[in-house]
Design a protein around this nucleic acid. Structure first.
Lengths: 205, 205
DNA sequence: GTCTATAGGAGGATAGAC
DNA sequence: GTCTATCCTCCTATAGAC
């Protein structure tokens, strides 16, 4: 008993996690494709292949579904930061992160949430995993920003928080979609263009 | 009769336009404040001070309300472009336009529409006033962009359309709201910061 | 054109059986 | 925990009197 019970629990837990992982994957895709408001819980259930009521056994609300997707993205971001070579210059790390973020968006894997929805915001801010992840990422990026500024790689006159927000904003930059819709550029071209305008600006150097 | 009838019609038309102008003003404000999805037609009616059914006598759908607000903004933009001094350098005109746009957003007068809503898009693209205005503004900005590039004021390696989209995107840049929420900067500071990152980039010069 | 009242339907959430 | 069936609220849009 002492040996079998833990195994049974572990197996059940694994099944649970696998299903929730599948749910989050669907939510992630649908949030990227249609946005929070246009995404319906019925769609999520249909996409996962389970009944809507079952979905609500895993997540208590639509907002919590979105929060789970954001936690997932945040974890992927943390993993990406972990893998960046220690010896790289801070400015290069920042460029890498932005490049990764834009790649995620162009691949249709970046959830898009309305920044105004208050019930969503409160759910998000009440989610410890999300808040902790956001704090961790912000602190790491903030440290690199200040280092890059002291090294003269980033304009030291800019408040670090403005730089941080500007980098975050690349995750929901409509320029990426517009350029994609124009149909004139490859995804790599688009990333290179926006990376250039972000770090080097529109003005000639 | 021949003299009074036109006056009556003109007066009625004036009243109609005044009411519709009031409606558009409310829609504009509510769109800026809550976005298209969160804005309800009931709110608009209450804000204007008329019944919802009356609203639908003026505009056939919620999408048309939003389109009217966008037309209004586009007309204000055209008027602003008209007033720019002829002798200014193209780059300065572009900076002025972006500054004006961001000021509008910070003043809560820039409607925010979901770029993904298809019924809204089709209504917008079916609105001749809007499409014509957008084309006109785009062509004028496009000409200035190319001039600025040939003068070496804007990076000539950037495709003009990428520059145009980057400028347009300042109208819905979340960085403005984030910086405002941070509470550390005045509106003028925020405009100056985002203008700097937009044209000069994050990297030091 | 303005109103009151309501149709009509979408969508988030739940009841209760298994 | 999964299902079917349903509730219930909100919101767009319209009917019909004045």
């Amino acid at each position: 008993m002492a040996s079998t019970t833990p195994q049974k629990i572990s197996f059940k837990a694994q099944m649970l996690l696998a299903r929730e992982s599948a749910i989050i994957q669907s939510v992630n895709r649908l949030l990227a494709e249609k946005g929070f408001d246009a995404m319906t819980v019925d769609e999520v259930a249909a996409d996962v292949g389970i009944a809507k009521a079952s979905l609500y056994k895993h997540f208590p609300s639509k907002e919590d579904l979105a929060a789970a997707a954001m936690v997932s993205v945040m974890q992927r971001a943390q993993a990406f930061l972990d893998e960046l070579p220690e010896e790289s210059a801070p400015i290069d790390k920042l460029r890498s992160v932005v490049t990764w973020t834009m790649g995620l968006k162009l691949a249709g894997e970046m959830p898009s949430l309305p920044s105004q929805n208050s019930s969503l915001r409160s759910t998000l801010m009440g989610n410890k995993d999300y808040v902790d992840g956001l704090m961790d990422v912000s602190e790491r990026l903030g440290a690199w920003i200040e280092m890059a500024q002291s090294q003269g790689a980033i304009n030291p006159q800019l408040p670090p928080i403005a730089v941080l927000y500007t980098l975050y904003a690349r995750a929901c930059d409509p320029v990426l979609e517009f350029l994609k819709m124009a149909g004139l550029f490859s995804n790599d071209d688009i990333v290179a263009l926006v990376l250039s305008t972000c770090f080097d600006g529109l003005a000639a150097r």
